[in-house]
């Protein structure tokens, strides 16, 4: 395949992910600013939980992998909500990672990348988290 054409296509995919990340970022902001709506409140709880668990996973994964798996299994036994959150994390982690990594990689390949890399990575992570939560929630509901 023509290298220049491929570069343009990567740029196009990057723009899609960037738009997606912005939309998800805005959605997460709306969720954070509207704590009185029950559904949105659930989203906030879910997002905070995902953030917390992701950070914990990232930090503890190399130190005590048994601890984190034990924590997740004990959490899932406590209440149904906790179990739901854990399942959401289970479904959403791969999607979140793919979205965040792809958005970052696509924008690294852009020509004017310096400012965009930072902005898109931050947005992709925020957006990816929200998007992942929504996608995970949809999968869960469909089951």
């Amino acid at each position: 395949m023509d290298k220049e054409l491929l570069k343009v296509r990567f740029g196009h995919i990057g723009k899609i992910f960037f738009n997606l990340a912005i939309a998800c970022g805005v959605l997460s902001l709306i969720c954070l600013l509207s704590p009185f709506v029950t559904a949105l409140y659930m989203l906030i709880v879910g997002m905070v939980a995902i953030l917390a668990i992701c950070l914990t996973l990232g930090l503890i994964f190399f130190i005590a992998p048994d601890f984190i798996s034990g924590l997740i299994s004990s959490l899932s036994d406590v209440t149904q909500i906790a179990g739901f959150v854990v399942k959401i994390v289970e479904y959403s982690l791969p999607i979140m990672t793919i979205v965040a990594v792809l958005a970052a990689v696509m924008f690294i390949m852009q020509t004017n990348r310096k400012k965009m890399v930072v902005a898109s990575t931050v947005l992709a992570i925020i957006g990816g988290l929200t998007w992942a939560f929504v996608a995970g929630g949809i999968v869960e509901m469909m089951q």
Binding site: L5, V8, L20
Partner: peptide, 21 residues
Amino acid sequence: VNELTSQLWWLWSIFYFFIGV
């Protein structure tokens, strides 16, 4: 370089449609 010059532009368009929700 324009993406639409390639013969498989429609396939890429479908791909963009789905990844662009």
